[in-house]
Design a protein around this nucleic acid. Structure first.
Length: 280
DNA sequence: AGTGCGACCCGAACGC
DNA sequence: TGCGTTCGGGTCGCAC
């Protein structure tokens, strides 16, 4: 699912396809459920005549920086896909929710099987004050995200460490796939309470979070189930996953069988031998 | 305030 | 084969 590496891959891919600096001439709507803070008419009026100047990432949010200081903030949730494609091509109407049409015969189409994604529009820099963006913490690629930073933020929280790392207001960008990988590499049981973790373990989490996410970006993310960043390409990280989706297979370190449990309702994979739980 | 959990949504995977 | 059921996943909002 789109976590930080997938979102970054999508942004890089759109920029590489030269999506910037084309005038928006209209929007085709197929389903409008994803528009959260405006009507379809307001959405078109807002975009028409503007250009995308740049695309940035805040946690898992995609921020389209438009002309006239406008922003379009998109969250893909689980299944959202953004494809920049020729407007001469017939769109696949299955799962298509809207297309933003440019004056160069290209369009930016949003596909979403689950219809969970969100689109919000903002004038000036008010998006930074919006409820959605305001709560997003720094992400692990930020050099300020150190073991000490994580320890300070986490140590008083009485939840499983996995749940804490998935909380976007503590640290952003990590989702259910990479959190399992980060905890495996750090040899920490996902149910461990933060108060039982030593400073060195927080440093390990910080180090491995950077490692895993950077490596995943390098491989253009993970393609699980239906997730693709581009209709013609798939991410390559799925073959590098050490524990996630590998229940029943031997641990790559010690050969113990990988176990699957639920942590706060989330499917969770770990090695019972490498990741022993301390405290309870 | 902190925490847990259902809701949102529906295709895919699973079970009978 | 075909039907019905369950699952999943990011985030919000409600209940405790």
């Amino acid at each position: 699912m789109p976590e930080l590496p997938e979102v970054q891959t999508i942004i890089t891919n759109l920029l590489n396809q030269k999506i910037v600096n084309h005038k928006i001439v209209g929007v085709n709507f197929y389903k409008t459920k994803i528009l959260k803070n405006c009507s379809p008419k307001q959405f078109v009026d807002f975009l028409k005549g503007e250009k995308i100047l740049n695309i940035e990432r805040i946690g898992k949010y995609i921020v389209f920086k438009l002309s006239n200081k406008k922003q379009l903030v998109v969250h893909l949730r689980m299944e959202g896909k953004l494809f920049y494609e020729s407007n001469l091509k017939q769109p696949n109407l299955r799962f298509l929710m809207l297309s933003i049409i440019f004056n160069n015969k290209y369009r930016l189409s949003y596909y979403d099987m689950r219809m969970f994604g969100t689109f919000n529009i903002y004038k000036n820099d008010e998006y930074l004050l919006s409820k959605e963006i305001k709560k997003v913490a720094i992400d692990p690629l930020n050099k300020e995200c150190t073991g000490r930073f994580l320890e300070q933020k986490c140590k008083r929280i009485n939840r499983a460490i996995k749940t804490v790392l998935l909380d976007q207001s503590i640290v952003s960008g990590i989702g259910n796939i990479y959190v399992d990988e980060i905890l495996f590499k750090s040899k920490i049981h996902p149910l461990t309470k933060p108060k039982y973790l030593k400073s060195e373990q927080y440093s390990l989490i910080a180090k491995n979070a950077k490692l895993v996410l950077k490596d995943a970006i390098k491989h253009k993310g993970t393609t699980v189930a239906s997730y693709k960043f581009d209709p013609n390409h798939t991410g390559g990280y799925q073959s590098l996953l050490l524990v996630h989706t590998r229940a029943g297979q031997p641990c790559p370190i010690c050969k113990t069988i990988i176990k699957k449990i639920k942590v706060n309702g989330r499917g969770t994979y770990f090695c019972p031998n490498c990741q022993k739980q301390v405290g309870k």
